[in-house]
Amino acid sequence: MSFAVARTDSSILGRWWWTVDRWTLAALACIVLMGALLVAAASPPVAQRIGLPTFYFVQRHLLLLGPSLLVMIGVSLLSPTSVRRLAMVCFLGALGATVLTLFAGVEIKGATRWIHLGPLSVQPSEFLKPAFAVVSAWFFARHHAAREAGQRFPGNLIAIGLYLLTVAVLMKQPDFGMTFVISAVWFAQFFLAGLPILFVLGLAVMGVTALVGAYFTFSHVASRIDRFLNPASGDTYQVDRSLEAFVNGGLLGTGPGQGKVKLSLPDAHADFIFAVAGEELGLFATLAIVALFGFVVLRGFQRLTRDQDLFVVLAAGGLFTQFGLQALIHMGSSLHLLPAKGMTLPFISFGGSSLLALGFGMGMALALTRTRFGMHGDKR
């Protein structure tokens, strides 16, 4: 394709192709293809077990994968200013829809995170996550720019207020996993934006206090932590089956479609799809998946080291951190390195809202890390 698009092509797609990071695009394409393979291997037994057509989840995954990739490419065409504006609109809409779930949401497994839009079930908080990272980055950057110019703009205070509002809404659902990811990214952005060391210590104390509070407030959080620290204290069926899958897979795996863990794990196509990969594809393939996620994150950070725009650094850094942290939590849960948490593996697990939101988030990350030129033609 690089030969088909000339460097002199001044069309929108031509400029996009020669400025977007094609290495990141290639790594994401590999992850997407791996996801299609694993959903096709893991989901048929799950569908049959709950009385759905055998290839129900496969068809839905492929049906939503196309729009997700179109969203990613479309958003990646935007300028940083347009990314900021789009993120603001998405943040307000997703926040409003997340609040709506508290009153008109569908309760699943004790949480009200979904709303029905016709035949579709949507989880608004999935879209809130990437939008909030960009919006908070802009307020941090705006505060810093105003201070450098000798002006005053309460960007940090606005970012703090939006964070508290977002967390309050998420914890009402409740969604502790989403709250943790958003909080970790927000704290990292605030630190990179020049947060005073006393504030860093204060936020660290607040974070520890929140974790302790969640343990004593939410029974499901306490149960997961107790089972992680002491497996004998409760039901560890899913984690046990997941670990067995990795053992059965060995170095080369049992072969695509030949695994057994998907016959017994309720969420083999979603929250534990990494275990299916471990059993059917083996150690080498799972290490390749880890390497792909690591490459996307590190490549994104490497691109940002050459950028002087604080908003771009904070926003794209937050988006790449979200991407990597979500993958880390999913993999860590499957391997019993972290307390069990229902979180999708980006672009690999089945999940409609997750797929579309990931396309949106990574589209913004690609747009922000595109090669841009200064007034004198210098790359930055």
Rank of each mutant, 00 (worst) to 15 (best):
Q189L: 11
V71E: 04
G207A: 05
L86K: 06
R306M: 03
G300W: 02
F176C: 07
G253V: 12
A222D: 12
A40R: 02
M171L: 15
I50T: 15
V297I: 13
G155L: 07
L28R: 02
Q123E: 12
H269Q: 14
S2M: 11
G93E: 10
L283K: 06
L358T: 02
F323T: 06
V71Y: 07
M343I: 14
L157N: 12
G150M: 12
L37V: 05
A87G: 04
P266Y: 03
I289M: 15
A316C: 05
Q173A: 11
R15H: 11
A214H: 00
L265A: 09
F295P: 06
L263A: 13
H143M: 06
V134E: 09
G374W: 09
F153V: 03
R60M: 10
V99N: 04
P231L: 04
L281Y: 03
M375E: 15
N230H: 08
S349E: 05
A188I: 10
K262W: 00
G359L: 04
V181A: 00
H336P: 03
Q151P: 05
D175K: 04
M331Q: 03
S125A: 05
A87W: 03
D307E: 15
Q308R: 14
A288Y: 12
L157R: 14
A149S: 15
G66V: 13
V58S: 13
T217R: 11
T321V: 04
I73H: 12
G361P: 14
R85Q: 12
Q322L: 13
A288D: 10
G300I: 02
A315K: 00
A188G: 06
A357L: 09
A145R: 04
L319K: 01
R152P: 03
L251K: 07
V200F: 12
M34G: 09
G253H: 09
P231V: 11
A327C: 14
T217L: 09
L304R: 01
A184I: 13
E280Y: 05
F350T: 00
A168I: 00
P266A: 03
H143V: 02
T112P: 00
A315H: 11
F216K: 07
L335H: 09
M88R: 07
G294W: 09
A97E: 04
G342H: 03
S43T: 05
M343E: 02
V290M: 09
R84E: 10
G352A: 08
A94C: 06
S349A: 06
R113Q: 15
M331S: 10
V5R: 01
F191L: 08
Y215C: 12
D9N: 13
A245H: 00
P346V: 10
K260V: 12
L52S: 14
M171H: 08
V46D: 05
I50V: 15
K379G: 03
A6K: 11
S68K: 06
L86E: 01
T98D: 05
L368E: 08
L263H: 08
F3D: 02
V83H: 04
L335G: 07
A145I: 01
T19K: 12
G234V: 02
F180C: 06
G249H: 01
E280H: 08
A94V: 00
L298R: 03
R241T: 13
E280Q: 11
V89A: 15
G74P: 02
F218Y: 12
Q48N: 09
F132I: 14
V212H: 11
R49G: 13
I289N: 06
L201W: 12
R15A: 10
